[in-house]
Design a binder for these strands. Structure first.
Length: 828
RNA sequence: GCCUGGAUGGCGGAACUGGUAGACGCGUUGGACUCAAAAUCCAAUUCUCGCAAGGGAGUGAGAGUUCGAUUCUCUCUCCAGGCACCA
């Protein structure tokens, strides 16, 4: 017997326990069913589950549960992205070791997460801060090193001179240190990089198979982030020196219009050319200004100075002055550009400011203009004053000029990417140690696999000052060279936390593997991830790094396939009162309070109903109540008709259904169709509304006649409706549906039941409503029999009482009929 | 600044390939039940003019294409996410 009141508390715990006892969510590889790997981006264990998590994991669980009911062998794992800054901050502030703080948070969040009833295979839990995980990451790092895909170069970091420590961008607030408020400076440090640019072309071409399966906006963002430009690298000899300057240009066709060369202040050549005290001063000024702004920020007034040196034009051999300019950045191309003021707006502005010559080499076809330019001419045209290339179309000249330069070994045709190599060094404690040893004799030596993991020590002092605590640890950095056994220094930098999240999805396929990151057989069975859910803020970094890792792991034989995530859903944020939930705004709603008051089913239902998944969701208490009410309405319907629902069903063929029951049955099958389609197309909010409509319809039948469901045909109709409703809502509110399913007499889980099928023949209607318009404005609606011809419709429409006044005395110009939808009378 | 999205009633949102704008939920109003309240059930609810019948306007703003535009094109405004050391 069902209790009168819907009391989620008792129900939810009970079913969660039963699911766990019977291993409902345990995934294994020896199933005859097709596999389905459903994954949500794993959480950072900050301490508490927040509404964003609830939403993320509810979305993932809908898919996982739906696919299970559709007959798939589903894997849905969970883990912890548990290295990172907050743990280290907690260590500084509270004197607790980051490991302890993190593991405590995990334990707490696990309890909260479990109370949501998400169908995780908890046996596959992965925690990235534990040595059994990061030892394999360290192994991969040594492979990056050996295959020349990890290298060291100088990189810039934010530096607080007072704390003597490196600051993350987040820790720099308006140019000052977040802890001591001192002005932040830029410091050059030797850092480790992964050569992601070597895979730039594959990361771009891989988009082909993600088309239509990933949101277009994510593909667009990645495409621009990678930023492919076709062009050439051209060498300019420095006059009276053996030095050369190599420039990158997308406009080799304008080579004859070069009137100066501009190099970045950070370019190695700049320091060499600027020896005079005055030049050095100017150079330092520009360096500082460039370091403090974003690379692509527009500069109102471009600044620069002449270095005093000249370059030799590769084809004309003219003398070209070399300038330093603040609009040239070292991060892109070669850090040097050939300036063509006549055909590039930035160069034009610079030339105007410093009164440098402007030489026009492209004119529109058929023109002979010699008027001075008011702005750069960037449209297509024909080359002039360009030696043997004069008269050529400028697009064709691009290739021709590069070919000429290639012949003379002064240039080469290339593709330049905006994407930069991935800096993975962090001067922090709470990360996976980079497994490298520096030996005076042997140089840079990777730690051999037998010595891995390089573990983080427990006896560490966190002062928040003087940089990475690992550097000051008494023994960590003191080691022996793995090659010559002589005393050597261990690398104290740790890895960017994005490295852990770049391969965790693959670890889930074999989470306890102790002979490698994972076994190939298991990875090949489960990968790719069929459905990946997470925030859109990861579009360019995490999602690009993971794709890079996947291709690396493929090339090294760890797994097969080109892409890690076959389908992607980027969900929006949870906001409250129009703003992101945050402690400082005081608008945080904790999941705990919602679970206490309404239960997990309501929380899950609301987070899917209130907004489409990809949009931001405004948390609204009243809306939560509405969803709770909806569940109560189902419960009450069930409670009030328990005896009817318990009656054994006679075969459908023995019943003749009244018109009213047929309408209800149509609604039931309409709901199944609608929910199936809407879940497939990720419109969960609309799917839920279909279930609400069916419930409304059932209540409507009772409003006309309290005893409506007492006839045998109506009982049959109600049973069909309720059974369908429980099945369709099982992924959304699994605990309650499980309870009612059990009450219907089932002794197996609704969670593992088969997803219902709708019957198309029950959806067919004989009539339709025709919308009648005059000149595109709706004037009337009328019921018509299906299959009516256009001529018959026209006759009927023109004779309609509400239509006549609008067409009287006017000429019929057109009669448009969209079958079974609309008729538009066009008069004039 | 650059890249990428978004904007629909009082609110969250719906609308198939260009074809009834506002499904569903919240809120509000009215009714039923009740001694009363809560809960529940039913009904109405884009704005505006009108006693009504009915008319007019309407999907961020402005233009355009079309018999017909929330949907397609152009221009603009505002908001959000990302910008490489938050994850």
């Amino acid at each position: 017997m069902v209790s009168e009141k819907y009391a989620p508390k008792g129900i939810e715990g009970k079913w969660q326990q039963l699911w766990a006892e019977q291993n409902v969510f345990k995934a294994d590889e020896d199933s005859h069913k097709p596999k389905y790997f459903c994954l949500c981006m794993f959480p950072y264990p900050s301490g508490n589950i927040h509404m964003g998590h609830i939403r993320n994991y509810s979305i993932g669980d809908i898919i996982a549960r739906y696919k299970r009911m559709k007959g798939f062998n589903v894997l849905q794992p969970i883990g912890w992205d548990s290295f990172g800054l907050p743990a280290e901050n907690a260590a500084i502030q509270r004197g607790v070791h980051p490991r302890e703080w993190t593991l405590q948070n995990i334990a707490q969040m696990k309890v909260e997460l479990k109370s949501m009833g998400i169908g995780y295979d908890w046996d596959r839990e992965v925690t990235t801060c534990l040595p059994e995980y990061y030892r394999w990451e360290q192994k991969l790092f040594t492979q990056f090193f050996e295959k020349d895909l990890a290298y060291k170069k100088t990189g810039q970091v934010n530096w607080c001179p007072k704390c003597e420590t490196v600051l993350a961008n987040e820790q720099v607030q308006e140019g000052a240190c977040w802890r001591c408020d001192s002005p932040v400076t830029v410091k050059n440090l030797s850092q480790w990089y992964f050569k992601i640019t070597a895979y730039a072309d594959q990361l771009l071409s891989g988009h082909e198979q993600l088309e239509k399966k990933w949101p277009q906006r994510v593909l667009d963002m990645q495409k621009h982030w990678i930023g492919e430009s076709q062009g050439g690298r051209i060498q300019f000899q420095i006059e009276g020196s053996s030095e050369k300057v190599e420039i990158f240009t997308t406009r080799p066709d304008t080579l004859f219009g070069v009137t100066f060369v501009t190099i970045a202040a950070a370019h190695p050549l700049a320091a060499k050319l600027c020896q005079a005290p005055q030049s050095i001063e100017q150079l330092e000024k520009i360096k500082k200004a460039v370091a403090l702004r974003r690379p692509d920020e527009e500069i109102k007034e471009k600044k620069g100075f002449f270095t005093g040196s000249y370059a030799i034009h590769p084809l004309t051999k003219e003398k070209i002055p070399v300038w330093v300019g603040d609009f040239v950045v070292m991060e892109y191309g070669t850090g040097a550009v050939m300036a063509v003021p006549a055909h590039d707006q930035r160069d034009f502005e610079f030339a105007t400011t410093y009164q440098l010559p402007i030489k026009r080499v492209i004119i529109p076809e058929g023109e002979h203009s010699s008027e001075p330019l008011k702005e750069a001419y960037t449209a297509p045209g024909v080359l002039v004053a360009s030696g043997i290339f004069s008269g050529q179309d400028n697009e064709l000249a691009k290739g021709a000029i590069l070919t000429e330069l290639e012949k003379k070994k002064l240039g080469v045709s290339t593709i330049q990417y905006r994407l930069r190599d991935w800096g993975v060094s962090r001067q922090r404690f709470w990360g996976a140690p980079i497994p490298i040893v520096y030996c005076k004799n042997c140089g840079t030596v990777p730690v051999p696999e037998k010595d891995l993991p390089v573990s983080l020590p427990m006896d560490v002092i966190f002062s928040g000052k003087q940089g990475n605590p690992l550097e000051h640890h008494p023994t960590f950095s003191k080691t022996q060279c793995p090659k010559c056994q002589k005393p050597a220094r261990r690398e104290t930098d740790t890895m960017d936390t994005f490295v852990e999240s770049s391969w965790y999805y693959a670890r889930y396929t074999d989470p306890h593997c102790s002979t490698g990151p994972f076994s190939k057989a298991k990875a090949d069975y489960w990968l790719p991830v069929d459905y990946y859910v997470g925030g859109v803020e990861h579009a360019c970094m995490h999602l690009l790094y993971s794709r890079f890792f996947h291709k690396i792991l493929r090339d090294w034989g760890y797994l097969s396939g080109d892409e890690p995530f076959a389908r992607l859903l980027t969900q929006g944020m949870v906001i409250k009162d129009g703003a992101k939930m945050s402690k400082s705004k005081g608008n945080v709603v904790t999941p705990g309070s919602i679970l206490d008051r309404f239960g997990a089913d309501t929380a899950r239902l609301f987070s899917l109903f209130a907004a489409p998944p990809e949009k931001d969701l405004d948390w609204n208490e009243k809306g939560v109540e509405g969803c709770h009410r909806f569940l109560q309405r189902i419960w009450r319907l069930f409670y009030q008709h328990q005896s009817s629902l318990a009656d054994p069903m006679v075969p459908e063929s023995e019943i003749s259904f009244s018109e009213k029951c047929l309408i209800l049955r149509r609604k039931t099958h309409w709901m199944i169709q609608k929910m199936t389609d809407d879940i497939e197309s990720e419109k969960f909010n609309v799917a839920i509304s279909a279930a609400m409509e069916l419930v409304n319809e059932l209540y409507g039948a009772l409003a006309d006649n309290e005893k409506f469901f007492s006839s045998s045909e109506a009982k049959w109709t109600l049973q069909e409706a309720m059974r369908s409703l429980l099945l369709c809502l099982a992924p959304f509110a699994p605990h309650m549906m499980e309870e009612l399913w059990h009450e219907l007499g089932h002794r197996t889980f609704v969670t593992t039941a088969e997803w219902p099928k709708y019957r198309p023949e029950l959806l067919v209607e004989s009539k339709f409503t025709l919308v009648v318009q005059v000149n595109g404005k709706v004037r009337d609606r009328v019921e018509m029999a299906k299959g009516i011809t256009k001529d018959d419709v026209q006759k009927l429409v023109l004779a309609m009482d509400k239509i006549k006044p609008f067409i009287e005395g006017k000429t019929l110009r057109q009669f448009i009929y969209v079958p079974e939808k609309i008729a538009n009378v066009v008069v004039g």
